[in-house]
Write a protein that binds this DNA or RNA. Sequence first.
DNA 1: CTGAAAGCGCTTACAG
DNA 2: CTGAAAGCGCTTACAG
Lengths: 334, 334
Amino acid sequence: MSSRPGRATLATIAEAAGVSIATVSKVVNGRDDVSPGTRAMVEDLLRQHYYTGRGGSRLATIEVVFAGPLAAYSNEVMEGVLQAAAEPGVAVMLSKGRGASSATAWALGVAKAGRSAVISVSNEMTVEDATALVRANVPLVVVDPLTPAGNDIISVGSTNYAGGITAAEHLLSLGHTRMAYIGGEAEAGCNQARWQGFRSTLESAGHPVPENLVLHETFRYSAGLTGGGILLDRPDPPTAVFAGSDEIAVGLLEAARRRGVRVPEDLSVVGFDDTQLAEFCSPPLTVVRQPLREMGRVAVRTALQLASGDSLDSHHVELATSLVVRASTAAPRR
Amino acid sequence: MSSRPGRATLATIAEAAGVSIATVSKVVNGRDDVSPGTRAMVEDLLRQHYYTGRGGSRLATIEVVFAGPLAAYSNEVMEGVLQAAAEPGVAVMLSKGRGASSATAWALGVAKAGRSAVISVSNEMTVEDATALVRANVPLVVVDPLTPAGNDIISVGSTNYAGGITAAEHLLSLGHTRMAYIGGEAEAGCNQARWQGFRSTLESAGHPVPENLVLHETFRYSAGLTGGGILLDRPDPPTAVFAGSDEIAVGLLEAARRRGVRVPEDLSVVGFDDTQLAEFCSPPLTVVRQPLREMGRVAVRTALQLASGDSLDSHHVELATSLVVRASTAAPRR
DNA sequence: CTGAAAGCGCTTACAG
DNA sequence: CTGAAAGCGCTTACAG
């Protein structure tokens, strides 16, 4: 073991690899006159030594990736991210993901641009993307994962199952017995958890959700608008609906308005998330609150820990959901 | 004139300044063993030659500054920014401004971090901030300026005055004669323009806005909620309200709901902006649309032009507003 | 495919 | 306050 006090230089790597500085330089610069074996070995060493180039580590920068459109939901997460990043002076970059480029090219670009870590929000990070980031030595933290994250993916979520229970208990306590669910993407893990928590609680209470009052589509407004229409146009509409997101709930509100169905007098609505939409709509929404800002903050702290090589206590953190009662729920009419 | 083919190096600057490379290096690194006169001269030359350091220009990066909370409004602008930045591969950083640090320190930090330009959205950029950026050689573009921008500040806005006229004409055409205005910050230039366009049109039509039906507070939801309450609690409430922003309009919607005032049957509401809030609220809002995405796109293109040293055709661009009719306006009851 | 050697851009301890 | 000189980290044309 040679002494290595400061940052790794080309010389550090060259010594460790038993090759010349010139060869290491070629690998770093992606030249092609290096044998595959040598290249692989040198790349490994570069990663192990956290080689950063002469610029040193620059300003720490976190790249936040949103797959979908920016929305009320993303704003909450971003506020938390910005807050947690501001104090240590970490810069925050916003992007829409890798677009058309290959996972490898994208990950390499992210590394080359000097990003300290990537935070992916509510996003289908494919295993391919995640692997590419690992190979490029860029830590990844996933917020509110759609797919149940694999074991080696670090993620921050909330207690979706408990949230489903909370919604059910609230509606039961108001006296509802005929309730419906409009959820997001059927495959999404968080959607499944919300639904199962809701479903099992109502079942135990002796008021199971009829199969034809369960809709899974997307987490977007349009799903609430059309799904709400389907439910409300039935001869026997539900007296309460649990929506898998605030956007769905707000779409449902509009479906109700169009039909002259009053909320909460004729229909109770519970949303999920507690974004600004929930506060700003009329009537303001009763929701299961997901602490999105706090999730953003935790994601930043975790990402920074990973970036500085610290080990983590846990690969998945779940923050508690809670009930926020506003004006969209009431006892059913009799 | 010596030949200068590629990027400026310390040697380029040293030659131009007639000092040694060592002295230039000291200036670049902020050492204090340089006389003020020499320092000033060298700094000038560094700017003139677009000195970037050995890293070259890195990845072009634009820093977008929002002073207030992220909201439906900022999302529209950001979508445009991200779209325009994606194609040329420009990175987008998000920040909340300089916080507690001095304007100079902040601007220097922005320059040192290698930002190509700053886009400030709907923000009170003080003259001090703007000057500091100029001195640090970082181009600035202001989107939807609150204060009427000075002559040397580059800005992108929309036709606020025309928007006010549009709102007035729409309500007049529906048959309204008693109309109110709830605007944002009274001093804000964009607020003034919207109000004056509205006011003058109604005046010409013989239906001037009574002074006690004009409220100026902030562009936020709470201003619409309280302002709407004041208006609707009058013995002689207006039959229509023009709101200076979507948030105000949505707050007004809630004030109406709480009082059992139906929109649009009992009250017509026109918003301003056309954010997602306008689409998602119930009833969906009739609005004067501000092309926020396009404004974000233009801001990026302008910023990039400035960063590459191109000159601009115009220091201020105004994009056209338009009327989007949804469900919050109708003829007044008789 | 590899590396010795020349050279570039930059920094800094030190002499004046 | 200034700069000559030593030296660092890196790149690259070229010889093997």
